[in-house]
Design a protein around this nucleic acid. Structure first.
Length: 505
RNA sequence: GCCCUCAUCGUCUAGUGGACUAGGACGCGGCCCUUUCAAGGCCAAAACACGGGUUCGAAUCCCGUUGAGGGCACCA
């Protein structure tokens, strides 16, 4: 059975990493079945709307490499309260049959129509308490240590005409019955109707609340599986009831556990990165983010112990059965490791391309074909040394810009005297200069090892001196490959400067 | 206060009544490899929250306790 799923954020700010995980689950489920995944913007709260956030939400999916089968297009975004600019054409309108529009503020007529239907059929009623009146009722209940739940009998005025300001509230029927949610993850969850309040469905400004809008849209747009955060569980009976009132088949419900920080609490700013952009800026790969997030609360199961997945593998193996029911803690250790794994899987040209912005930010300029070529040659030498893209710069910066000649103490080999180090440096220069082909790192290594033998030096001793002389650092990618990339002229020039430094000149 | 959910190594998890002396991964420790740093290989330490049941047998089923999380808006 083909699944059609959606992710329905409200454009009130940045997407939270936990929300993105839910979106990834939904997307994987849809793609696993050959179905569709789309985005719907739930902008029914005019107050909380943040201009620009719709565009950022769409761009998040773009960065992650998640292809949408539907979502607000140019015209829909343009029609939002504040003009949204999304230059990249999101889709061409061929939405696999998912009916437009994908922005709730442009679907108002549907909600109005359904709400009138509910009233006409006895499932909803008009009500017009002011917020002050409601507050007073709440305070009173609190003073009596009672729960406040709005029910029809509490109405202050009952003779409300359709043309005067009012809200529409749902009736909970039968009042003393039970409503059962069949959740694919949690199983049967039973709610006493007495504990469900008469939620507002249509606000006095004519906009729907979430409860009405989500049910109407999911039905009209043919959503088969509703995946959403655990925090929606308490209001799920309202939605179940609405489906029953309308006589519609319910979707498969799946309330996913939340993602917590390492203190077991809901992820928030003090836990570090929040938005996908922060991860991107720290040098995490979208491939790794998807892999990691998918495994946060999901595992292939059946004894399958795979940890590293390509996107295609995730799509092939994902199913709701593998989704857990207890909250997961977001930890960076495994993410970092996974990111390193995915970096090592990248072809050199691809990694170089992704590295360039990070190098530029660190002041390493790769702006000519020659420099690009050098970077490409450095890639195999650094790929297994970095876990994040922002860690590459220290491994290559000395290739692209000059170094400060190291102080004497750095040019003296371990357990060696100054004069012996100086001699080793001079001999190294001679050997390197005599090399027939400076590009041949293997031959270079062979020659240098022989020199070490001749001088009765351990490789560590000799190579440490050269490493410091040539790179100015004690930690670098493999020495000879690096020198080959730097080239003969640069290498010998730096050794000359080191010789001068050690000679005290 | 009321309602709901959850509970296996530090973390992500496998496990659906016997194959569990509880498996894998990350991290941590050790060893090997080694020109530095990594990567890689090998080894080790590390968990069924607690208490009652049910059963010949329970990490797995039931009840309770404790702990944690979430929800109780003209917000989603």
């Amino acid at each position: 059975m083909k699944a059609r799923t959606r992710f329905a954020p409200s454009p009130t700010g940045e997407l939270h990493i936990g929300g993105i995980r839910t979106a990834i689950f939904s997307w994987l489920l849809a793609k696993h079945t050959g179905g569709e995944f789309y985005i719907r913007l739930e902008d029914t709260d005019q107050e909380r709307y943040v201009p620009g956030s719709a565009r950022r939400i769409l761009q998040s999916f773009d960065w992650l490499g998640i292809q949408l089968d539907g979502g607000p297009d140019h015209a829909e975004l343009a029609a939002m309260k504040t003009n949204e600019d999304y230059p990249e054409a999101l889709a061409d309108g061929s939405y696999h049959g998912v009916p437009k529009p994908f922005v709730q503020s442009q679907r108002l007529a549907f909600y109005k129509e359904r709400s009138e239907w509910l009233i006409a059929n006895g499932y909803a009623y008009r009500s017009n308490e002011t917020s002050e009146e409601l507050d007073a009722m709440r305070k009173e209940a609190e003073a009596k240590k009672q729960n406040f739940r709005f029910h029809e009998h509490m109405r202050l005025r009952t003779d409300i005409k359709p043309d005067e300001p009012h809200v529409v509230r749902m009736r909970i029927l039968p009042p003393n019955g039970q409503t059962v949610l069949n959740d694919a993850l949690k199983g049967k969850v039973v709610f006493e109707n007495a504990n469900v309040d008469d939620a507002i469905l249509l606000k006095s400004d004519g906009f729907p609340t979430y409860h009405l809008a989500v049910v109407v849209d999911d039905h009209m747009q043919g959503v088969t599986h509703v995946l959403r955060g655990d925090d929606w569980l308490p209001s799920a009976p309202k939605h179940v009831l609405l489906y029953q009132y309308f006589g519609w088949d319910q979707p498969v419900w799946a309330h996913t556990p939340n993602v917590n920080g390492n203190d077991g609490r809901k992820l928030s700013k003090r836990h570090g990165a929040q938005t996908i952009w922060e991860f991107r800026d720290q040098g995490y790969l979208p491939e790794a983010m998807i892999n990691f997030l998918a495994m946060l609360g999901w595992a292939p199961g059946n004894g399958d112990e795979q940890n590293v997945f390509t996107i295609d593998e995730l799509i092939a193996k994902f199913s709701l059965d593998g989704v857990g029911i207890s909250p997961a803690v977001f930890e960076y250790n495994k993410l970092d490791w996974l990111n390193g794994v995915h970096i090592r899987r990248l072809p050199a040209e691809d990694l170089a391309k992704r590295l360039e912005p990070f190098l530029a930010q660190a002041g390493v300029v790769v702006d000519t074909p020659e420099k690009h070529e050098k970077l490409l040659r450095m890639i195999p030498l650094i790929t297994e040394r970095i876990k994040k893209l922002n860690e590459a710069a220290p491994f290559v910066d000395f290739v692209f810009s000059d170094i400060v000649t190291p102080p004497q103490e750095q040019l003296i080999g371990p357990k060696m005297e100054l004069h012996l180090s100086l001699h080793a440096l001079k001999e190294s220069r001679r050997v390197l200069d005599e090399l027939p082909n400076f590009d041949d790192a293997a031959a270079m290594e062979e020659a240098m090892r022989k020199l070490g033998d001749d001088l009765a030096l351990k490789p560590t001793q000799l190579f440490t001196i050269i490493r410091n002389a040539v790179t100015g650092k004690s930690v670098t990618p493999p020495l000879f490959g690096t020198m080959a990339v730097m080239g003969k002229a640069t290498t010998l020039e730096r050794i000359d400067r080191a010789i001068a430094q050690l000679s005290g000149r």
